[in-house]
């Protein structure tokens, strides 16, 4: 991972839609007046007839997507994560998940790295509410390469998929040849001192921490959960057995997100303590994205601090 080679996953999402549009004419994209920010404008420019701006009306956007799906289209309904999932929850539940319709929902600008816009726009509960819906698959890719894979893969799944991406540019972790599988997390290293389970923007932070810790002869492994539902049970149990300590980190409330999903697996299969890093049941605030990560203790340094405490 070259930490200076960065791209925002929302940009990758927009680029992936264009590629997908070229190979599948059933792909249609809907946005709610945020095409510039969510990067769906890339698709709009290439395929104006298959792009629908629904105006500032997320509920209408989601239900319209359901109607399109009943007629064989594969809609990608897009907005900021807070509006795409929160504002339109009932529509997602009753129009998409219950009838199991082939609609993809992408929430961009997830987490606190939205930055200056502040708490109203920083979605910290989307994994929680999307994960709780039967039939819904939840994806939270960590970099450019993985996001492009997730978008393509989502289009092949016949049913609802939620894809969570971020505003902030983050390091490109994978090379283009990397292969992923839905529901199979990616493990970095085999360190036995601790496992850091991470998702989305936090994977790069975890990898930075891993590298730093190695200099002090502390060996951790990092697990990248690009899919949160279905969760990769095997890897959680394996890491619980093989490593001394477990940490989860996410740009999401610690209630209901990745940490909770991992806890559910642990408690039923291999009870073991888990330190959940994330937003501690609080809302975000305005500020520079990097400074916010520091403020809410979601950086590689904070991970290192917690792992070092274990060794003391």
């Amino acid at each position: 991972m070259d930490i200076n080679n960065k791209k925002a996953t929302r940009q990758s999402y927009g680029e992936a839609l264009v590629e997908l549009g070229k190979i599948n004419e059933n792909i249609v994209v809907l946005d709610a007046d945020l095409a510039e920010a969510t990067k769906t404008k890339l698709f709009k420019e290439e395929f104006p007839d298959r792009f629908f701006d629904m105006g500032i009306a997320e509920q209408d956007m989601i239900s319209t997507s359901a109607g399109l799906a009943t007629c064989g289209k594969i809609p990608f309904a897009t907005s900021f994560a807070v509006f795409a999932t929160g504002r339109a929850y009932d529509q997602i539940r009753n129009n998409i998940c219950y009838p199991n319709l082939n609609v993809k929902i992408c929430g961009t600008h997830a987490g606190i790295t939205v930055g200056e816009d502040g708490a109203t726009h920083q979605m910290l509960e989307d994994i929680n509410i999307m994960r709780g819906l039967p039939n819904m698959i939840v994806m939270s890719p960590s970099d450019d390469i993985q996001t492009k894979w997730a978008v393509k893969e989502a289009s092949k799944i016949k049913g609802p998929v939620y894809i969570r991406v971020a505003r902030l540019a983050t390091p490109i972790i994978y090379d283009e040849k990397t292969e992923f599988e839905v529901g199979k997390a990616v493990m970095f290293g085999e360190g036995k001192d601790a496992t850091i389970f991470a998702t989305g923007t936090m994977v790069a932070e975890a990898l930075k921490a891993k590298e730093e810790l190695e200099k002090e002869n502390i060996f951790v492994r990092v697990v990248d959960f690009h899919t949160i539902k279905p969760i990769d049970k095997e890897i959680i149990i394996k890491c619980a057995k093989e490593t001394k300590k477990l940490i989860s980190i996410e740009e999401h409330n610690i209630i209901g997100g990745l940490g909770t999903a991992i806890s559910e697996v642990l408690v039923e299969n291999y009870p073991k303590n888990l330190v959940r890093m994330g937003m501690k049941d609080c809302f975000g605030k305005s500020g520079n994205a990097i400074k916010l990560l520091e403020y809410f203790k979601l950086t590689s340094k904070d991970i290192i601090k917690i792992v070092s405490q274990f060794s003391d």
Binding site: D60, S63, T64, L68, T70, P75, N95
Partner: peptide, 21 residues
């Protein structure tokens, strides 16, 4: 043609079908 029950959503769904057509 469509699962319904939660009110206020059927016209959006119908629009989607009409756009697809």
């Amino acid at each position: 043609d469509m699962t319904t029950g939660s009110l206020g959503q059927g016209l959006s769904v119908s629009n989607g079908m009409a756009i697809a057509g």
